[in-house]
Amino acid sequence: MTGTTGAAWHGGAAAVATLTFDVDAETPILAAGRQYAGHLMTMSHQAYGPDVGVPRILDLLDDLDVPATFFVPGWVAEHRPGLAATIVERGHEVAHHSYSHRAPTSMNAVEQRADFERALEVFDAQGIEITGHRAALWEATQTTLELVAEHGLTYDSSLMGDDRPYLLGVDGRPVAELPVHWSLDDWEQYAFLPAPQIGSVIESPRKVLELWQAELDAMRHYRCLFNLCLHPFLSGRPSRLLALRDLIETAQSRGDVHFARCRDLAAATYADPALERRDPPNVTADPAVYPD
């Protein structure tokens, strides 16, 4: 499988592609309300991701010889104890995606720490090395980044301050940020459930493929990070997975796109002497101007 090498984070490629899969399974629905545990249609809809989608995705990645990163909530790894190991054995990365998939912005600092560390304990018990993190719903707070730095993780992938990797200074420690964006998230294209309502439109995979190919070519023009965020319960469905195959084959045919696991791209980011460290966003909102 290919990676990213060289002094510059992009290793000379026109764009770097990170294929990332958020293996949320039941967690985002349970985070919306534990009463949904008794909704069998809804629970089966979510279980499709790890039980059907992930094996198909792993076969596709093997077939096309590309690496990927799977962001797995600790709850999902705990309830499917062989899942994370299978992903790693196939040559891919497993990364931290909270324990419960509750948004950090909905928790206080004590709750965040407990959730964050509980996930680490699950992966440690399973012998899974964790070097990166993605916040549930991408809703990171300053506490979230502090936990990433405190526990020695090398990167986060939750913020939107650029379309190239950058370095954050967090409590005197560097954290590589691999930025994301809604335009490269399949949730905005395919997510639908009547209750809890998580979307109202199911797009055609052909339309989605056109969008993502346009993003890829524009990012090749500007030498960017094509950080694609997919959910196996969504993109593991047959027509959508074939569209993903088309997208990967298009990127390979360009001849100037490198595929990398997030942990490898983070290492290349640290090694790039041209990248300066930034501070995380620190916005103060005057309550007299912006009331709660």
Rank of each mutant, 00 (worst) to 15 (best):
P281M: 11
R134F: 00
A271W: 04
T154Q: 09
G127H: 11
V175N: 06
T20M: 08
P104K: 11
P165D: 07
R102L: 14
V88L: 07
P50T: 04
A191V: 06
L228M: 12
A37Q: 10
D217V: 14
E93T: 06
S239R: 14
D186Y: 11
L83I: 09
E146P: 04
V54A: 02
A32Y: 00
G132E: 03
M219W: 06
L159S: 11
A7G: 00
Y155P: 12
D292I: 13
L244H: 08
G127Q: 11
D264R: 06
R278C: 07
A68K: 10
A47K: 13
R173D: 07
F71V: 04
L247P: 02
T269E: 10
A77Q: 03
D62E: 15
R164E: 12
E203M: 12
S204E: 13
E210P: 00
P280V: 12
T42K: 10
L228S: 02
I248P: 03
T42W: 04
S200E: 14
R118P: 01
L153E: 05
G152F: 10
G38T: 03
M41C: 05
I202D: 00
W9G: 05
P273F: 10
T269W: 08
D185G: 04
E121S: 15
F71R: 01
R263D: 15
P281V: 13
S106V: 03
R277Q: 15
R223T: 15
Y99V: 04
V110M: 06
E177I: 05
Q35P: 00
Y270W: 13
T20R: 02
V180Y: 03
L168W: 09
S106N: 07
D124P: 00
M160H: 13
S100K: 01
D62M: 00
A8R: 15
V66A: 08
E276G: 14
H10Y: 04
V88R: 13
R220S: 01
H96M: 10
A17Y: 01
I202N: 02
S253V: 04
A8V: 01
Q112G: 13
W75V: 01
T4N: 03
D163I: 04
H97V: 03
L64M: 06
P50W: 05
G236P: 12
V54R: 01
L209P: 02
T69M: 06
T250S: 10
T250M: 02
V180H: 04
H151N: 14
E146C: 09
P291D: 08
H79V: 02
A243H: 10
E215H: 14
A285S: 12
P165N: 09
Q46R: 15
A149G: 05
T105L: 13
R206D: 15
P281K: 12
